[in-house]
Amino acid sequence: MTLSLSVVLAVSALMFGLGVYGALTQRNAIRVLMCIELVLNSVNINLVAFSRYVGPDQALGQVFTVFVMTVAAAEAAVGLAIILMVARRKAHIDIDQINLLKW
C-alpha cells in the first residue's frame, strides 16, 4: 500500500464525526450505543494505522486496540444491561425522557 497515512486518518476522522453526530442526535438509547461503537472503531482504525506506518515492527498500536476492544465489549454489555433495566421499568428507552440527572 502506498497511500499516505493522512488518507487513513481522514477516513477515521470522518467515521468519528458520523459517530459523534449519531450519539448526539439519536433518541433511542440503543442507537446511541451503536453510534458510540462507531466512534470506538474509528479510534481503532487510527491506532492500527499509526502502528502500521510509525512502528510496524513493534505492534504497540495494536496492543492498544486490543484494550479498546476489551473496554468496548465491557461497555456494550453493561450499557445494554442498563438499557434493558430502563426498558423494563419505564416501558421505553427514549433518552429524551430519561433525565434522572436533572437538577
Binding site: A23, L24, V32, I95, I98, L101, K102
Partner: peptide, 9 residues
C-alpha cells in the same frame, strides 16, 4: 442541568 445525557455530551 437538564439531566439529558446528550446535552452534556
Amino acid at each position: 442541568q437538564t439531566g439529558y445525557v446528550q446535552s452534556y455530551v
